[in-house]
Design a protein around this nucleic acid. Structure first.
Length: 857
RNA sequence: GCCCGGGUGGCGGAAUUGGUAGACGCGCUAGAUUUAGGAUCUAGUGUCGAAAGGCGUGGGGGUUCGAGUCCCCCCCCGGGCACCA
């Protein structure tokens, strides 16, 4: 055979097969099929200007291996790709250069698509989606309107994170350690009008739904902690000398007798009435100081408690004791009732506060052992109640429900559940996002709309959503679905106003409209007002949606990307269900993954979807670090560009190496030398396929080869199912190393190896499959079956141990009995030397594996 | 501080889940081939030791015939949460 045939020209080969797959539509997913379906989903990328990072393909290769493997196993496979393309960077670039974000986005998408295609994924490109496409975002808007209709969207003045540098409001999740996640700029608190989604209404469902999900435990735990459900009681304390009551939330009603002071948050509405005249100046100063503190300060100073006595007292409902009320910023207005009863003996924070201000610390729970050491204060463990009146001697934990019942009977309290989860601030004061399809009208016009029989009927929420502007209360009306998409208008200046309004607020043509209450149609107010009583003056909502919106439901759109009358066809949704496998970074544990569950569950409750949960099986790939072991970053200069790697070694080598680096979920460093190793392996496979002289028959005659081949089929198959791709690859390396040393083997053996290799290195596998006379595509070949009968060796090796240490081994027929093996072990020369002068106290035989002789003396 | 995950050769990592520790790959050493380099091939490569053999999975204890794997204590690294009453 000619030398050039031994040359593995990966760039030609890879180009050839990428064109073949595209031409033949090899990876098209069929909406109707007798085959079982398999839907493999990647977290779709944000198409940044920097292009594909070496980390992106890690997850994509993993899902691609599964997609190709499942296809070979006879599944109708859906493996789609799309773009999460709204977001800050394109907008910031627009601010700087004046380039429209859609232009930037388009060129970034083109570059990403080119790069992704160059890696040879089994993607059905006909289903490509883009969140910035009006055809797509009209359904994002549609879902929002449904939420609005059901009272799950509202408008509120909220203290939110304001970033002066970005001149935009950030979500809690976009703020890390008091800095913006994007750009690392300082942020501060500001009150702004916000559109908010009532995700808290779904707290219980989102929590309960976690149980059935095949997700990494740590991610489930994170969501659980984020939702933060706690059970306890709301207890009313009457205010001494007033008919008002102060309600607190506590998870420890069993410690009520230990409450020696109360604390209310600086923002608490009752604070004004609680402060006595002599304390007013001091309290006012404290409130002011607390308001100035950013959350960063609050966390940094977490250990240093501060507070001021209000001068007022509350009456403890269980023992009528007068206890002082303090104001302190360690109590948050946003959680529970914004007020607490403080039990310093049994709460670390209250203890610290009481110590600092010399407040009584009264133990009411004794350690169950009576152990003074363990019962040191503050003590929050289980125990027996004391100093608690009639409850003395009872177990604190079991007593909780009794105390709650007693409080309820007296009308001074009730059981209560609280969540840490806050409602989702859904608006952004930015241009490059989905416009929120609401219009604002006067109270009178709103009443008119409510009483009309037009398209808005039924779309208006039960309780009006209102907002005060310039002293007038405005009412929110939805656009009807027929008016969607509400497209982004063209603007000349992308600069945010800096006052907290989006650039959309400056486009009066778009902003100020005549609105038809009957049809939902609109006209710019610069035009003549159409005749008819239905036409009213209205203003559009200027906020846009956050980047999370588009990714909340994209897994549904891939199922039916071209549907212009529904977000997804019901039958198609019933067929495809949700993704069978979802892979992406762990950084989305509580953001995207919680929001998407919320929207999906809501749509399920609305009867739009057949399944309550979007992602049944989830996996997080681990980060790939730079060769120096640091996180890849431009400034460090350790970034590896996939284009360069593909040029040097080919896409197959890149794919194989990303999987060979280590466990998929592990954080692991890149290695230039390492990729040479897998590249060498591919060249070996290439070379062996052209060793014609070795291929002697169709069927494999060499028993050793046959056994190893079937072992390899078994291991590779199991490893793929378990997502242990590094193990699958090393097993294939073992097989090729064996073939290389073998004088002859069959074509069939090589063909099976190629099939096993195909999901990992699809281009080379296709090429060699064709060269050996196979008909492409190799993915249409049924996955090889491991014959377990061939895996049993006729001869087994049994290890001899003395006191658990390896001292020898012997070969035995597989039916050898215990006695024969043990006596052979004892007869072994080396074993003998370790038995000299010692007494055998125990003989262990593990069938087919080992003998262990325990000796003494 | 609290809650997870993890610590195995010079490096990335295997180990049928309590049964031959270090598979596979990288690197390294020697040799073959080659004008040379590269590529390829062969042999070796945990550690101490000439060998026999000893030691060895972060450290210390324990359970067991047998422990990387199970239990207790401690150290280190990574991630998450961080006044949520």
């Amino acid at each position: 055979m000619a030398d050039e045939e031994l040359f593995y020209d990966f760039s030609t080969v890879e180009k050839k097969w990428q064109e073949f797959w595209e031409r033949e539509n090899t990876f098209r997913a069929y909406d109707q099929s007798d085959k079982p379906k398999y839907y493999a989903l990647d977290m779709f990328p944000y198409p940044s200007g920097a292009g594909l990072h070496i980390g992106h393909p890690e997850g994509y290769v993993a899902s691609d291996i599964l997609a190709r493997y499942k296809k070979a196993c006879g599944y109708n496979v859906l493996h789609p790709m799309g773009w999460d393309a709204f977001g800050l960077p394109a907008e910031q670039y627009a601010i700087k250069t004046g380039t429209h974000p859609s232009v930037t986005t388009q060129s970034n998408v083109d570059n990403f698509r080119r790069q992704i295609k160059s890696i040879g994924f089994a993607i059905d490109w006909e289903r490509e989606i883009n969140t910035t496409d009006p055809e797509y975002y009209q359904w994002t808007q549609w879902i929002f309107l449904r939420l609005f209709q059901r009272g799950l969207a509202y408008v509120d003045e909220k203290p939110v994170w304001w970033c002066p540098n970005l001149r935009a409001v950030l979500a809690n999740e976009e703020v890390v350690d008091g800095k913006s996640e994007v750009g690392n700029h300082p942020v501060e608190r500001r009150n702004l009008r916000q559109v908010v989604l009532r995700i808290t209404a779904y707290a219980e469902k989102l929590l309960a739904g976690l149980d059935d999900l095949d997700w990494p435990d740590s991610t489930k735990r994170q969501q659980k902690a984020w939702i933060g459900r706690s059970e306890g009681a709301e207890v009313q304390f009457s205010i001494d000398g007033s008919d008002k009551k102060l309600t607190v939330y506590t998870t420890r009603p069993d410690t009520l007798f230990g409450a020696t002071y109360m604390v209310i948050a600086p923002e608490h509405p009752l604070l004004d009435q609680l402060v006595i005249a002599e304390k007013k100046d001091q309290v006012d100063a404290y409130i002011l100081a607390a308001a100035k503190k950013s959350d960063l300060d609050r966390t940094d100073l977490a250990k240093d408690k501060s507070g001021v006595f209000t001068g007022s007292y509350c009456i403890n409902p269980v023992n009528n004791e007068k206890i002082p009320v303090w104001v302190a910023d360690y109590v948050l207005i946003s959680y529970g009732t914004g007020a607490i009863m403080a039990v310093p003996a049994h709460d670390e924070r209250d203890y610290e506060f009481a110590e600092k201000f010399g407040i009584e610390i009264r133990r009411v729970i004794a350690h169950p052992d009576g152990d003074e050491e363990k019962g040191q204060l503050p003590y929050s463990g289980p125990g027996v109640m004391e100093n608690s009146g009639d409850y003395d001697g009872m177990d604190a934990h079991t007593c909780k429900s009794k105390i709650i019942a007693d409080l309820e009977a007296k009308g001074v309290g009730k059981g209560a559940v609280n969540y840490k989860l806050r409602d989702w601030i859904f608006s952004r004061q930015r241009y490059w996002g989905e416009p929120i399809p609401l219009v604002w009208v006067s109270k009178e016009d709103y009443s008119l709309a409510q009483n009309k029989d037009g398209v808005l009927k039924g779309l208006i929420p039960e309780n009006p959503v209102t907002s005060d502007k310039d002293g007038e209360t405005l009412y929110a009306l939805p656009l009807p679905a027929s008016e969607l998409p509400l497209k982004l208008p063209e603007v000349e200046n992308y600069q945010p106003s800096g006052t907290g309004e989006s650039p959309l607020a400056t486009i009066s043509d778009w902003l100020d409209i005549w609105f038809d209450l009957e049809t939902g149609k609109s006209l710019p107010r610069t035009e003549t007002k159409p005749t008819g009583e239905n036409w009213v003056s209205a203003t559009r909502e200027t906020n846009t949606m956050p980047q999370w919106a588009g990714s909340c439901w994209y897994h549904l759109r891939y199922i039916d990307p071209g549907n212009s009358s529904n977000l997804v066809d019901k039958e198609k949704e019933a067929y495809w269900g949700g993704p069978d496998f979802y892979i992406g970074g762990a950084e989305h544990a509580v953001l995207h993954l919680l929001y998407a569950r919320f929207w999906h569950r809501f749509l399920y409750d609305e009867g739009v979807l057949a399944n309550p949960e979007p992602y049944k099986k989830l996996f997080h790939q681990g980060l790939i670090l730079g060769e120096d072991g640091n996180k890849m970053s431009k400034s460090v200069g350790n970034v590896v560009n996939p284009d360069v790697v593909i040029d040097a070694y080919g896409a197959d080598s890149l794919r194989l190496f990303e999987m060979f680096l280590g466990p998929l979920e592990a954080v692991k460093p890149w290695s230039e030398k390492g990729i040479e190793g897998v590249h060498r392996f591919l060249r070996k496979v290439h070379r062996e396929c052209f060793r014609a002289e070795k291929h002697i028959s169709e069927e494999e005659n060499n028993k050793e080869t046959l056994k190893l081949l079937h072992e390899t089929i078994l291991k590779v198959t199991e490893a793929i199912e378990d997502l242990r791709f590094n193990v699958a690859i090393s097993q294939m390396m073992i097989l090729i190393n064996h073939l290389q040393k073998t004088d002859c083997y069959s074509i069939n053996t090589v063909q099976i190896l190629l099939q096993l290799l195909a999901p990992f290195a699809p281009h080379l596998a296709e090429e060699l499959w064709e060269k050996l006379g196979g008909k492409p595509s190799i993915v249409n070949q049924p996955w090889p079956n491991a014959r377990k009968d061939l895996l049993v060796a006729e001869e087994i090796t049994i290890v001899f141990q003395v006191n658990g240490k390896l001292r020898g081994q012997g070969k035995f027929p597989k039916e050898a009995n215990k006695e024969a093996v043990i006596s052979a072990a004892k007869a072994d020369e080396k074993v003998q030397s370790f038995l000299q002068g010692k007494e055998i106290v125990k003989e262990i035989y593990v069938p087919g594996k080992l003998v262990n002789l325990a000796v003494k003396g």
